[in-house]
Design a protein around this nucleic acid. Structure first.
Length: 558
RNA sequence: UGCCUCGUGGUGUAAUGGUAGCACAAGUGACUCUGAAUCACUUUGUCUAGGUUCGAGUCCUAGCGAGGCAGCCA
């Protein structure tokens, strides 16, 4: 299925939004995507981006991008750039007109957040605590009130001001919400709102030495920006009462935002956690963050997967609160479905074996017509040269084939795509028995469109004229992990697929010389391919995005 | 352990008290100058036990199972 046009997808979040609009709670819709700028975006974020921007688009609203940068120790400017370029790539031409301020920064609200904190303390709903981090944990676990819990409003205000002024060392004090230390929900047991960190911030420099915690910053940033629906993943479910408490405690006038949680993306044959992705990079299992085997946005993009295929995938898997595990096949389907429609076909030979046509004149070259895309007649045809010496793929010849193998075999016939039927007469080998060359006879009347063009042979294979072939490096990617759930148990790195990358020297049809980096091609019978940025003037490098479905390979395996 | 949330074919989802549907995957066949695509067909499901109701995937109760949270991370 492709992206919806007018019919928007249905899920419990969109149901809530429709209801809020109908009831008049909100006049318009504003969502937000709030990455922490301390890592690269991956396909899980793509699900969230598709959701938040999809909703903004469908309801005529806006989606803000906000860097959730409340922790100076972990965040860097470098990531802001990559995050923004990934987001822009994902929404370009689709929901880019619904992009709110980009990027916004939580740190831009530090002044306001502090004012709110003062307000909260003034209302007697927050206090400065001297407990150590360890004690704070201990007291919260055991539902014990801090001895500093009942300081006067004046003292709290004074201490908070001095915290801000830098009078205390890291960890000496915190500002805590005064809620209920016996609440069953831990996040209502006087959560920390501010901590002291004498650290420079990537965006505010050294203006601050106290920094707000997630719950305080996020809730109020949503409110400040006029977010109507704050969509986050399931692990924040238990924070929702605190989200609501903050808005209520400050008696903020409506409309107030509402937090709604949905299940994060899980995918088979990969890992999703930031920590594990970092390990793959640092320990050189992949070449970098944009290695085409990575499920980072940068990796998927380099692999050749399009933003629209990613969005289509996100649309297909839906939104629920059930922590599901999606099959990689669902993503692969979204890619193949789109690429079959848009990719022009070309002939390329990955593992060449030479074929000599014994009854074809030495110097004769013929130009044959080839269809660019059978799914799209408007793309027309092109010419491909044909001569006495050709390359075919090693997979398309077997000396001792199994039953139902209908490619080339000794004495057998096969159709060369867009050209003639040939018959294998002789198999040449080197001293160690490897096949080096096939000598074949051509049926000159069998040319596509010719006298006996309709003569049926079971197999049709692709080929490239040896004299005209373009040499190129082709990188054949496969799944990075051998098992569906690499992080289910044991060390996920032990399940890495040693054959996830194979590099071959391929022979391409000459028209591919003109290929450009953003174009998708189907190499007929092989898969979908895209030019890699490693390509140079002299030598192309191609990435295989994905193979074609291959029922023969499946049958042969049995 | 406490608290929160969630259980619909193999997987992902829909059904808003009224015929359990769709997609992916799998299988069979047709077609084929891509073993692709396309088309047709097929297999497989409401966690369990009670209850309410003319009628329950849906509401109620209990159980079972799964996931999340218990940072001065987000």
């Amino acid at each position: 299925m492709t992206e919806p046009a007018d019919n928007r997808p249905s899920d419990f979040i969109r149901d809530i939004i429709v209801e809020d609009l109908k009831s008049g709670k909100h006049k318009s819709v504003r969502t937000r995507f709030p990455p922490e700028p301390n890592g690269y975006l991956h396909i899980g974020h793509a699900k969230s981006i598709a959701l938040n921007f999809g909703i903004a688009k469908e309801f005529g609203g806006v989606c803000n991008i906000r860097m959730d940068d409340t922790n100076p120790a972990k965040e860097e400017t470098e990531y802001v750039e990559s995050i923004m370029s990934d987001v822009r790539w994902l929404i370009d031409g689709w929901a880019d007109t619904h992009l709110g301020g980009a990027p916004l920064y939580t740190s831009d609200y530090f002044d306001k957040l502090y004012e709110y904190a003062v307000d909260l303390a003034r209302r007697g709903k927050a206090y400065v605590d001297d407990l150590s981090p360890e004690q704070t944990d201990e007291f919260r676990r055991t539902a014990k009130e801090s001895p500093f819990r009942n300081r006067s409003v004046e003292e709290n205000l004074d201490l908070l001001g001095r915290m801000k002024a830098g009078e205390f060392p890291d960890g000496a004090k915190t500002l805590r919400a005064k809620i209920d230390m016996s609440a069953p929900n831990i996040w209502l047991r006087d959560p920390v709102l501010y901590r002291i960190k004498h650290a420079a911030h990537h965006h505010t420099g050294d203006k601050w030495c106290i920094y707000p915690m997630y719950d305080w910053a996020h809730t109020l940033s949503d409110y400040i920006e006029g977010i109507t629906h704050s969509l986050c993943t399931l692990e924040f479910e238990v924070h929702r009462p605190l989200y609501a408490w903050i808005l209520e405690a400050l008696e903020l006038p409506p409309p107030r935002p509402r937090q709604i949680e949905f299940a994060r993306l899980n995918l088979t044959y990969t890992v999703m956690s930031k920590r594990k992705l970092i390990q793959l990079v640092n320990e050189k299992f992949v070449s970098g963050w944009d290695d085409p085997r990575m499920i980072t946005i940068a990796g998927l993009r380099r692999r050749g997967i399009t933003a629209s295929a990613l969005r289509s995938f996100a649309y297909n898997i839906g939104i629920t609160k059930y922590p599901s595990l999606n099959e990689m096949e669902t993503l692969e389907h979204a890619v193949r479905e789109e690429f079959n429609r848009i990719a022009q076909r070309r002939l390329a030979v990955l593992r060449p074996i030479k074929v000599v046509l014994t009854n074809w004149p030495n110097d004769k070259v013929e130009e044959l017509d080839a269809i660019n895309n059978p799914e799209d007649a408007s793309t027309g045809t092109r010419k491909i040269p044909f001569g006495r010496e050709l390359f075919i793929d090693r997979d398309d010849f077997m000396e001792n084939p199994p039953p139902k193998y209908f490619r080339l075999k000794p004495g057998g016939e096969v159709r060369l795509k867009y050209s003639y039927i040939i018959q294998c007469e002789e198999v040449m080998k080197d001293s160690s028995g490897n096949v080096t060359e096939l000598r074949c006879k051509i049926d000159i009347d069998s040319k596509s469109g010719g006298a006996t063009a309709n003569r049926k042979v079971k197999g049709t294979i692709h080929w490239v004229s040896a004299a005209h072939a373009v040499d190129a490096e082709v990188r054949l990617y496969d799944r990075l992990f051998k098992v569906p759930e690499p992080d289910a148990d044991g060390d996920f790195k032990s399940f890495i697929n040693p054959d996830s990358l194979e590099v071959v020297n391929a022979k391409l049809e000459p028209s591919l010389k003109e290929a450009r980096p953003n174009e998708r091609y189907q190499f007929e019978r092989l898969g979908y391919f895209v030019l890699d940025p490693d390509s140079t003037q002299d030598r192309q490098v191609w990435n295989r995005t994905i193979t074609l479905r291959d029922t023969w390979a499946k049958a042969a395996k049995k």
